[in-house]
Amino acid sequence: MADYVRTGSVRPVDEERPDPVSRLDEAAEALTELHEAFTGEESLDDALQRVAETATRALADADAVTVSVVTGQRPHTAAATDRNLVALDEEQYESGRGPCLESARRLTPVRAVIGEHRDLWPEFEAAAARAGICAYLSVPVVLPASNDAEARHVGTLNVYSYTSTAFDPFDEGLMRLFTASASATITSDQRWRHSQGKVEHLEQALASRAAIEQAKGVLMAVHTCSADDAFEMLVEQSQRANVKLRDVAAKLLDSVTKP
């Protein structure tokens, strides 16, 4: 296989790799950028796209990054810095085998040099060779659950390179640190959004309760009835008009406050 495929996108085999300190600094800078970029308002897919884009700057030989979400249902690619390489992920999903799925199942990083695993992952190997990919690194990452019924689901950060000598054990360790930190950041972000949603829901509930109580007071004064009777009047109107109780109360209050 050729030492490199695309001019300007790869590093020749005989060129020395950056020293570990420089590589660690690059990863640290990428993580800092990732943490500072989160706003607490992004969707999970947007957050994963940001993770993918940042990961390409964390490794010197990372030419493209995808993020696979591997759940009980069919796996899918949630983010990608190069949509053309999503086909390589799809080959693994369709065949049920490949380094991405291997990483998710074992919960360990998987490094692959294209051409060395034709018997193990023939579909992926063929697709990677057609795309000019020479090396691959997949690292598992625990992602926030999509709903309260799940504790978590597993994804993988898939790093592609056009350089055949890309990715060594040090890169593997860097990506494990990167994915652990990214997972913690996304989880915190999602929990913040969830808590904000609960607060907003509570505020709406309190506002609705206040409106209903005021409407009950108006009806008690007009009809000289008890609080229970006033509430029954509101409920009856709500059912008759097929309108939420708080909206009935708000309409009543609006009618008595208009000049």
Rank of each mutant, 00 (worst) to 15 (best):
L143P: 01
L107F: 02
D254L: 11
P18C: 09
V141L: 02
Y160W: 08
R57C: 03
S22E: 15
K258E: 13
R176V: 12
Y162R: 08
V139C: 03
T163Y: 06
E41L: 09
A37P: 01
Y162H: 06
Y160R: 02
K216W: 11
D189E: 15
A221R: 07
T257Q: 12
A62R: 00
A182T: 03
R83S: 12
T179D: 03
V142G: 00
R106A: 00
A166V: 04
R246M: 06
S43T: 01
D148G: 04
K198H: 11
K216S: 07
S188V: 06
T77D: 06
R105N: 14
R11I: 07
V21T: 15
A2W: 15
H194C: 09
A129R: 04
S195C: 09
D25I: 09
T163C: 05
A207C: 01
L245N: 10
L48T: 01
L34S: 01
Y162S: 09
T108K: 10
A87G: 13
R111G: 10
L59W: 01
F178M: 10
R11T: 10
V243M: 14
A129Y: 00
A127Q: 07
T39M: 04
E116R: 12
T71D: 01
N84A: 15
G197A: 09
E102N: 05
E236P: 10
D119S: 09
A127N: 12
N147C: 03
K198Q: 14
R176S: 12
T32L: 14
R6N: 08
A28Y: 12
S226H: 02
V235C: 04
V21I: 14
S183V: 07
T165W: 12
L202M: 15
A60F: 14
G98C: 12
A149N: 03
S238R: 08
V70M: 00
E102K: 07
S138L: 01
P12Y: 03
E125I: 01
R50I: 10
H117Q: 13
